[in-house]
Amino acid sequence: MTGNLVEVRGLQVDFLTAKGLFTAVKGVDFDIGHGEVMGLAGESGSGKSTIAFSLMRLHRPPALISKGSIIIDGEDVLAMPMHKLTKWRWSKVSMVFQSAMNSLNPVLTVFEQFRDVIVRHTGGTRDQARARAEELLELVGIPVHRLDDYPHQLSGGMRQRIVLAMSLALDPKLIVMDEPTTALDVVVQREILQEIMALKQRFGFSILFITHDLALMGQFADRIAVMLEGSLVEVAPAAEIVSNPQHAYTRRLWSSMPILSRSRVA
C-alpha cells in the first residue's frame, strides 16, 4: 500500500456563536498512514475533539467546516452526498468515544446495539448479526453470554471493550478514539490498550488517538501532533516528542503532569 489513508489539508472549523464566528480549528494539515497510530494531544478546548468529529462529518451546527479538504482512502469526505455518507460512516471510519456509558443505550441489551449496527449496514439477518457479535466479543475477551446484558450490568472496562468491539464490527480502515480510557483506572487502561494494539496488528486499521495524557501517547502512538488553540504546533514521531520536544507548549504540557519517578531500573 502506498500513500496515506487520511489526508487533511487546511481544515478550518468555525462555530457560529451569539458573539460572532469562533474559529475552533484554524487551518490544520495532517496525514495518517496505513496502519499508523496518530496521536492528537492538547488541553481542553484546543479543538482536538472538533477535528475528530469533523473527520466523520459528525460535527453539528453551530459548528461548520468552512475551509479545507478531508480525503480518506481516496474519497473526498466533504463532497460525499448524505445517503453515501451514512453508509460510509462505521464501515470505513468508526469512532470510540470517551464515555462508554454515554455511547451505549441504557435501555437496550448489548446485542440489540450490535444488531442495529450490523443489520443496518450489511442488511444481514438477526442470526448473522448474532454470530458476528459473538465473534467480536470473543476478540475483546468478554464472555459471549454478556451480549444479553444491559450496559449497567457491566463494569466500566467491559463497556469500553464492547464499544471497541462495536467499532470493529464492519472492518473499518480508520478508528477515531476520543479519550477512550480517560475514565478508567491505569490497570484497566493498560489492558484495553494492549488489546487495541493486538487487534490493530491483526486487522491493520489506522487509529487517530486523542488524549491529553502525553505519557500514554508516547507509549502507544507512532506519531504525535500537539494542538494549541486550534492549530497544530508540533507534529513529530512519538520518540521525538518524548525525548526532544521542540515547541515550548509541548514542553509545558509535559511539565504539567507529575510523572512517576523510579530510580530503579525497570
Binding site: 475477551g141 491505569v186 487502561q189 493498560r190 489492558e191 490498550l193 494492549q194 488489546e195 494494539m197 493486538a198 487487534l199 490493530k200 496488528q201 491483526r202 495524557d213 502525553l214 505519557a215 500514554l216 501517547m217 508516547g218 507509549q219 502507544f220 512519538a238 518524548v242 512517576l260 525497570a266
Partner: peptide
C-alpha cells in the same frame, strides 16, 4: 504509562 516503554501488539491478552 511510561513513554520509554513502547506497547506492542504481541501479548494482547497477556497483561489482562
Amino acid at each position: 504509562p511510561d513513554p520509554s516503554i513502547r506497547l506492542c501488539g504481541q501479548d494482547g491478552k497477556a497483561f489482562a
